[in-house]
């Protein structure tokens, strides 16, 4: 199942099922999101790392993916929000709250998958993102960097 389909499936589950399986479902969402970032890294010729930041591989993968690609930071908070919602789903004693947290987590996971998929699709067009590095700098330096301005 694709990460997007997994997120959709979890978001659509009934409250009781979500609450009952909150821990494994939260883990499933984190792993699905990790696989999204792994795809991005492999697509860029990198080997996804196995390290963790603050106890989460997702954050380490994000840092690896954003290295040299500032526009990728647009999904940093989505990664952190996903972890927050999953943590809340795991620790909540309340059935409705657990289900609600998981649904929110699924929506954030969905956004992450859409964002990265969109960027992968557009990779051939260059990076027309709000915080992208300059295109000519990429041509000159490989992965961005400051270009020489010649306005003489």
């Amino acid at each position: 199942m694709s990460p997007l389909a997994r997120a959709d499936t979890i978001a659509a589950m009934p409250e009781a099922a979500l609450a009952e399986q909150a821990v494994p479902l939260a883990q499933a969402l984190l792993e699905a999101s990790e696989s999204v970032l792994e795809d991005w890294l492999r697509g860029h010729g990198q080997v996804p790392g196995s390290g963790e930041i603050e106890g989460f591989r997702l954050l380490a993968l994000h840092r690896q993916a954003a290295r040299g690609t500032p526009s990728f930071n647009a999904c940093r908070e989505s990664c952190r929000e996903l972890i927050f919602q999953c943590n809340m789903a795991r620790v909540s004693d309340d059935t409705a709250a657990r289900a609600r947290r998981l649904r929110l987590a699924a929506m954030v996971a969905r956004h992450l998958a859409l964002f990265v998929a969109g960027k992968l699709e557009n990779a051939g067009l260059g990076e027309f993102c709000c915080s992208a590095r300059d295109l000519r700098g990429r041509d000159e330096g490989g992965v961005g960097g400051t270009m020489e301005v010649k306005h003489g």
């Binding site: 908070e77 989505s78 929110l104 929506m107 954030v108 956004h111 964002f115 969109g118």
Partner: peptide, 10 residues
């Protein structure tokens, strides 16, 4: 949960 998420504007 998506208050700072990308809208794809670019």
């Amino acid at each position: 949960p998506l208050k700072t998420a990308c809208c794809g504007g670019a």
